[in-house]
């Protein structure tokens, strides 16, 4: 993990890129100088990796790994402490019938639910992540966003999932996006920062690559696809692209950064495809919940059913996993 001090991490650890963030023009030149992305080729590569056949022992390994990488998420207007406690219990003990089932990586909630979540997972090692910065639209003044972050951190959040200012990004004000990330990173203190791009709104793969680099330069600990609140969320292709970005960033700076696809990953088959992407793009160093997460909720039950199938040899059903 990045062990350097927050906020200053990019500048210190990646001096090669210090010039890139010196001005809006410099940053724009840098981002537009990144290699382009060919849509068809990227999607074909993602699809091709999707044909890997993961069976038996490899499947068992992948299922447990996937469970351990889940940020079990509830982000509803209707969330209550009771709902969050149930979620926390599920994260700590996903399958009551099988205590060997790994715990999820974290629960992910709104800032006002952090305290309840913290209590629910206390002592388990499950982290509490909180969306902040006027999630999901991010349309608030910076002060409000930072206050949102500090509030969540003060309530005990281990991780902060921020959203970038897509309006600023799409209008070419990259430095604004960057500076906001730097500020949020500083507000995070010890908490790890996940930077959400809302890839569905960025629209092009070139934009996703540029956003990835802004995020990485800004001090993100994770780059994350999406909020789960728009039409298109995590896809194999946009996740593959972000994995290429963290791979390249580590090669150039030595800094390893995590990736979190979120939204739309519902089945074991999907999750395993993403793990194959990780394995064959960023590499085995990322096959750990410190470096890769799934932002998901219904995925967990499907993984649990598949896990039961592997251990019992028969297909499970929704009545044999918990509804939370």
């Amino acid at each position: 993990m990045p062990t350097t001090a927050p906020a200053a991490s990019a500048a210190l650890a990646a001096p090669a890129f210090a010039d890139a963030t010196a001005s809006d023009r410099a940053l724009r030149r840098f981002l537009h100088g990144l290699p382009g992305v060919d849509t068809v080729g990227l999607e074909a590569r993602a699809a091709s990796l999707g044909t890997r056949s993961i069976k038996t022992t490899a499947k068992a390994y992948a299922i447990d790994l996937a469970i351990s990488m889940i940020d079990l998420t509830t982000l509803e207007g209707a969330d209550t402490p009771g709902k969050v406690r149930a979620l926390g219990a599920k994260a700590v003990n996903p399958d009551p019938t099988d205590r060997t089932t790994p715990r999820t990586a974290a629960v992910c909630v709104y800032p006002d639910m952090v305290a309840a979540a913290k209590e629910a997972v206390a002592g388990s090692g499950v982290k509490v992540a909180s969306v902040a910065t006027a999630f999901p639209a991010g349309r608030a003044a910076l002060d409000i966003k930072l206050a949102d972050v500090r509030d969540a951190v003060a309530a005990g959040a281990d991780e902060i999932d921020m959203v970038i200012d897509r309006g600023a990004f799409l209008s070419g004000r990259y430095l604004k996006v960057y500076e906001e990330i730097v500020a949020v990173k500083e507000a995070c203190g010890e908490a790890r920062l996940k930077v959400i791009f809302e890839t569905g709104e960025l629209s092009t793969y070139d934009n996703i690559r540029r956003a990835s680099w802004i995020g990485m330069l800004g001090g993100a600990d994770f780059i994350k696809t999406s909020t789960g609140k728009v039409g298109v969320n995590a896809t194999p292709a946009n996740t593959l692209l972000m994995l290429e970005a963290v791979r390249d960033f580590r090669a150039q700076t030595g800094i390893q950064i995590g990736v979190k696809p979120a939204g739309g990953i519902r089945t074991t088959k999907d999750a395993i495809k993403f793990l194959v992407l990780v394995n064959e793009t960023a590499g085995a160093d990322w096959l750990d919940n410190h470096w890769f997460r799934f932002g998901a909720s219904s995925l967990l039950n499907d993984l649990l059913m598949q896990r039961q199938k592997l251990s019992t040899g028969r297909y499970s059903g929704p009545d044999y996993v918990t509804v939370d």
């Binding site: 080729g41 999607e43 890839t199 709104e201 629209s203 092009t204 793969y205 298109v232 896809t235 194999p236």
Partner: peptide, 13 residues
Amino acid sequence: HPTGSLGASGSAY
């Protein structure tokens, strides 16, 4: 030459 979609938003499988 590849054509592809205009953007990433419509492309998923």
